[in-house]
Design a protein around this nucleic acid. Structure first.
Lengths: 228, 228
DNA sequence: TCAAAAGTGTTATCGTTACACCCATGC
DNA sequence: GCATGGGTGTAACGATAACACTTTTGA
């Protein structure tokens, strides 16, 4: 009953990182093989016979860039027959969040180079990867409406302004500091610490906060009604 | 540069239908081939070399059951190496909505039988299809929080109570009729008609409504903040 | 002492919830 | 005329939005 198929399966990952200075960035790697040799592309590769999709993504991310993944979920499967010039390759795209300050990017064997690109200044990309990133950005922007966000992207302790800037970037509009703070307090996901940020600029030093993980993950499951 | 892979790709569809009497049901077909011969399973099958994933689902649904699809989106890709006893089969599951009154189910060549099953009374299912349905139900319940729902499931004209029952079923709790109506009016997605429902039970005949499609699809894109 | 960023509270508005009586129909 | 389901409004409450002055620090 074997059905002859000529379809190969790959995985790709859209890895988002965030820093208050650099805003939201995507991890890209420079290809070392044809097609699209020397083009920027999403990290990813072919799935092996005995590994799950998630194992495949994790392996590829490890070997291509050395990131520490904080969050990983499936995004969408891209299967147009024409998306890869080598023939039929269906790719299961994934969505990942990392904190870029937690590790050094390491372009290794499979990648000529690896780097962060602001989502508003992406280079030309291999295959349909620009479309995949567009979907991932949609997902990220969408998440904000029904899940808390930030834990996987920010440092363990952070000034509340960092979180606010993250929301402002994703929503692409200004937010009232006071109301934002009130709402976060109301959600109960922030824990205040008696520490202030080491000074990196002028102005009053900011108190540091961390997430109440229990409450955070509870709300992540239950969903929130949160319009900033 | 060909990489030898022994993975086959299939598609499956979780098709939801709704009637005020029968509540939310899933379309299942009875398998005519091994493995899981004579078991109930989701409609689906292998993707052909030159068709897109969506084409593959549509084709399978057509040949296996003859449904009229009103809405189709990708759900999730299931890729555990052990999910199919025949070997490695990765399945891209889809999520579909139909109005069961629009057509007659037709079990054809590929299916011994086809039928609707209430999501609370599912039979034993082939492969990991029970898990796939569970994911689809989650998606359906989730949608209600950020998208209008009903257009693809209900008749063109319907009494508002049908829509309310749909929400009550998905939310699994009672809803206040008056507040529900006010909220729907506020959203502006309902158009009242000067017709009443043909009597099928005792009581005052209900006014019929239809959806304001333009507004409906606008809100579907923009998202809604809607807590019933 | 000035510039920069952080901390903080009140009011008005809007949306949500809770709740009960009357109306049209079939039996 | 009674049982069944449909149609409709108001008041209390809670959440959201708008808005400005004071504090701490570095230069």
């Amino acid at each position: 009953m074997a059905i002859q198929q000529n379809i190969r399966l790959s995985v790709d990952a859209v890895v988002f990182g965030y820093t208050a200075r650099e805003s939201i960035s995507v991890l890209l790697i420079k290809r070392t093989i044809e097609p699209f040799l020397h083009s920027w592309a999403l990290p990813g590769g072919f799935v092996r016979d005995h590994e799950s999709l998630e194992e495949a993504v994790t392996r590829e991310l490890q070997t291509e860039s050395g990131v520490h993944i904080n969050y990983l979920e499936q995004l969408y499967t891209f299967g147009l027959p024409s998306r890869d010039p080598r023939g039929r390759v269906v790719s299961v795209a994934h969505f990942a969040l990392v904190n870029p300050t937690n590790f050094k990017l390491a372009a290794s064997s499979d990648a000529e180079d690896a780097g962060w690109f602001n989502i508003k200044e992406l280079p030309d990309l291999a295959f349909d990867h620009a479309g995949i990133i567009a979907e991932a950005v949609k997902r990220l922007r969408g998440k904000i409406r029904y899940q808390p966000i930030g834990f996987e992207l920010l440092d363990k302790k952070f000034p509340i302004a960092d979180l606010e800037k993250l929301y402002e970037t994703l929503l692409d509009r200004p937010i009232d500091r006071r109301n934002f703070q009130k709402k976060m307090n109301h959600l109960g996901i922030l824990i205040a610490h008696n520490e202030t940020q080491k000074q990196l600029s002028q102005g009053r030093p900011a108190k540091l906060f961390s997430f109440n993980e229990k409450r955070y993950f509870q709300l992540m499951k239950d969903g929130i009604a949160f319009e900033v």
